[in-house]
């Protein structure tokens, strides 16, 4: 696993580019907190150059697509917002922010979850895979390629969630038949109505797997 540390200021979600100085400061932080578990006041008090956390925030280590991040996180912040607004991983989408559409589906410690309903502070040390983590170099993951091949989308906004759910469906062995897939993919709404293509893509990938 590569170690990449990330902007640890709790108050910005804005900057894609992190200055070298920030990286150095935070690198120190990640080393200092590594043995402690990086949680709450203990972790933060051992770290120089970072403001003592208030009751509103905590230090959280997340591994995202194999890259480790140490983040000072607003306790209200969902994994979805951490991904999109802090880590600039905007491939994971916000459709409803209420757990009702599946657009925000990611894999958290190997299981699919609605990241909009998952508070980051409760998942210190978690390993997350997002849509950005599926490609091998320039090569699409077979399920990604199957979505293109089988027209598993139109606008593409639900697609990241569909693919992350579809992958989970296959590992859960819920992709044995099209009916099976329909059932286990029904937590992911596609307003463009690309369901037949989504099923075909998941089925084809499951059969090839």
């Amino acid at each position: 696993m590569t170690e990449k540390d990330t902007d640890s200021s709790p108050e910005t979600g804005s900057d894609a580019a992190i200055s070298r100085r920030d990286v150095l400061i935070v690198t120190g932080a990640s080393i200092a907190s590594a043995g402690i578990g990086g949680h709450g006041a203990n972790a933060a008090s051992s770290v120089a150059n970072i403001e003592a956390p208030t009751a509103q925030s905590a230090k959280v280590r997340l591994s995202v697509n194999g890259v480790s991040h140490l983040l000072e996180i607003d306790n209200r912040q969902s994994i979805l917002d951490v991904l999109r607004e802090r880590l600039q991983l905007t491939g994971t989408k916000k459709g409803c922010n209420q757990g009702a559409c599946g657009a925000c589906t990611v894999h958290l410690d190997g299981k699919r979850v609605n990241s909009c309903l998952t508070l980051a502070v409760m998942h210190d040390g978690a390993a997350i895979t997002t849509i950005e983590g599926l490609k091998q170099g320039d090569t699409l993951h077979p399920l990604q390629a199957a979505f293109v091949e089988h027209e598993g989308f139109q606008c593409g906004y639900c697609t990241s969630g569909q693919i992350m759910s579809g992958l989970a469906c296959i590992t859960e062995e819920h992709a044995q038949s099209v009916d099976d897939i329909r059932f286990w993919m029904s937590g992911n709404i596609c307003r463009c109505g690309a369901y037949p293509g989504i099923c075909a893509a998941v089925r084809a990938t499951a059969q090839d797997a």
């Binding site: 580019a17 491939g91 916000k94 997002t130 990604q144 593409g156 697609t159």
Partner: peptide
């Protein structure tokens, strides 16, 4: 196949809210 398909299935297509600006 869609020319923008690979972008959409890999999370690379950017929708409005995803155009982050410095100092926003």
């Amino acid at each position: 196949p869609r020319v923008d398909g690979p972008l959409k299935v890999s999370g690379g297509a950017r929708y409005a809210f995803e155009f982050n600006q410095s100092g926003q």
